[in-house]
């Protein structure tokens, strides 16, 4: 048991020591946020959604940053595989459970940092919510990220370091677009209807805590559950198959 903890601790340490990765993945969403929301801090009702622009984009960019954090665990896995480390781990008693947990935890640690920084940025632009709302919003985002944690692991075990860059960039862009990270998707129309089935949409919808009521419908929970189930089994399968030389 303590072995698993030690392993996880070093995985975390490793992630935080990679300074370039660290600064870029935390800094980029933050810069984008100030560029978008800084000049528009007085828009109190974005496109009739009832949510202020600084709040909407705070959560929008938090979803962008956290999705990137989740998928970047895949990039780290891909580079570990490329140097044969994955095979080295397979001949140790490391349990798959411990391995997955360490990967998911490091991804979530990055995601939480990204969220915290964007909250600070949001507060500096006048976003103010009750303590309960901040907590609920954070909780929903963390739940909404579960499928992306699985996706990161799956991609990491299927792709090479060369191909995972474009896959991650493209994947995050697409999910961000369909989720409404860059602009609200409105209340009807094709994009809105499609977005209902995309987990990133519900990440961004977490900002609706400010409106009172429940930001997530039953559909939201079902969508997250289904994506989680599908992507987790994909991740497990990718991990199991991945014992050959890369």
């Amino acid at each position: 048991m303590s072995g698993a903890l030690t392993y996880t601790r070093y995985e975390l340490l490793r992630t935080f020591r990679n300074r370039r990765f660290f600064i870029l993945s935390l800094g980029f969403p933050l810069v984008l946020y100030f560029v978008i929301a800084g000049p528009n801090r007085n828009v109190h009702n974005l496109s009739g959604s009832g949510v202020s622009l600084p709040l909407y984009f705070m959560v929008g960019l938090a979803s962008f940053g956290t999705m990137s954090a989740m998928l970047s665990s895949g990039a780290r896995i891909a580079s570990e595989r490329a140097v044969g480390w994955n095979r080295q781990l397979r001949i140790t008693p490391l349990q798959p459970r411990t391995y997955f947990r360490a990967k998911v935890l490091t991804a979530y640690a990055m995601a939480l940092l990204s969220i915290a920084l964007l909250y600070l940025a949001g507060a500096s632009l006048g976003v103010s919510l009750s303590a309960g709302d901040w907590l609920e919003m954070t909780g929903l985002m963390l739940v909404g990220l579960i499928p992306f944690a699985a996706l990161g692991i799956a991609l990491g075990h299927m792709l090479t370091p060369d191909s995972i860059g474009p896959a991650m960039g493209g994947g995050v862009s697409l999910f961000a677009l369909l989720g409404g990270t860059w602009f609200p998707l409105g209340n009807h129309g094709f994009l809105h209807d499609l977005a209902q089935f995309v987990p990133s949409y519900w990440l961004v919808q977490a900002s609706h805590v400010a409106l009172g009521g429940k930001p997530w419908s039953g559909t939201a929970w079902a969508v997250i559950a289904v994506w989680t189930a599908v992507l987790s089994s994909l991740a497990v399968r990718a991990y199991r198959r991945d014992t050959g030389r890369v």
Binding site: Y10, L13, N18, G84, I91, P93
Partner: peptide, 23 residues
């Protein structure tokens, strides 16, 4: 194993300790 390098961002001692912890 035949092909293989090490994962980055740990010291040599930390890496050896990390692997030792699994056994």
């Amino acid at each position: 194993l035949q092909t293989g390098s090490l994962i980055r961002d740990l010291t040599v001692r930390e890496l050896v300790a990390m692997m030792a912890a699994l056994y």
